[in-house]
Design a protein around this nucleic acid. Sequence first.
DNA 1: GCTATTAATGTTATACTATAACATACTATA
DNA 2: TATAGTATGTTATAGTATAACATTAATAGC
Lengths: 160, 160
Amino acid sequence: METLSFEKHDHRACIAKSLEIVVRCSKEAELQFTPTRKKVLEILLEEHRALGAYEILEKLRADGISSQPPVAYRALDFLVKNGFAHKIEGLNAFIACTILGKAHSPAFLICRMCAAVAESQPENSREYLDDTAQNAGFLIENTVIEAQGLCPKCQRDSVG
Amino acid sequence: METLSFEKHDHRACIAKSLEIVVRCSKEAELQFTPTRKKVLEILLEEHRALGAYEILEKLRADGISSQPPVAYRALDFLVKNGFAHKIEGLNAFIACTILGKAHSPAFLICRMCAAVAESQPENSREYLDDTAQNAGFLIENTVIEAQGLCPKCQRDSVG
DNA sequence: GCTATTAATGTTATACTATAACATACTATA
DNA sequence: TATAGTATGTTATAGTATAACATTAATAGC
């Protein structure tokens, strides 16, 4: 399991490692990891929190990059399509992938107080959905699995 | 498991039964199942397909009911809050509940071709998420579990 | 290298989804 | 029959996403 995001960690290293993997994967798959796409990924990597497209646009503007909506949406499309980022459907927002390089059906734990998001990949993540689908004769292409609630820190804060 | 929606069934009876249960539950819980709320539920029950709020508004308009956006959103809020309908986050759309009367963490199978949606409640629906959450110290309050893909009929159609 | 083709970006406009805010009317209770 | 709470009507606006078309950059074949 992988819920790093809720724990203290060396975030500079965390960002650097992700970028490195994405650069390598892009090279291997002959994808164009262009400056705009890189910048958007860097913006997402800054925080273990989902960002809306328009929040990302503001940060692009601050960097002098063209900041019309399609700029962000195109970069996000690229990142999501290639598994470098995910969309959190329950928030209409986006987050960098923290399980890079492995094929996975992501699941998310989303804190409603501090907006932190942890990505996890329980072994049986899709198993139970696969069972259900098989019984129904349904062919699954992709899954959205999100839990909203309170992260450890916010539970402590709201009790105290 | 419950994936009735993909199968032929007596849909008139299906609607009538759902309405009856919602009327009874509303009475028991002293909820006001008002004409507008009833109409919106009826609109949702017509099809085993998720409808957008503005699609619902058009149908309300056809019935001579005030059709400003808040009218639909308020009714949908009521229905969702009380478990009579669900929001499909991946589609920004709404669907009538087909597992009425039981507390449940719904899961959905959504066909990308015909837009049919089946609600299911596998026994272990939330178990695996609960495990993950527990390991992370996360407190789950509600879950979004959606699979997109092809329903049995559309698989056959796309092969033929 | 040159050119054809495809992929990416820039830009404007617009579509789609959702809620804030405030006035009015209904319902239940004391 | 006042009153508090709930529901509705209505206007305006906020937030999310994409269509469409012009321009530029990268890649492949000659």
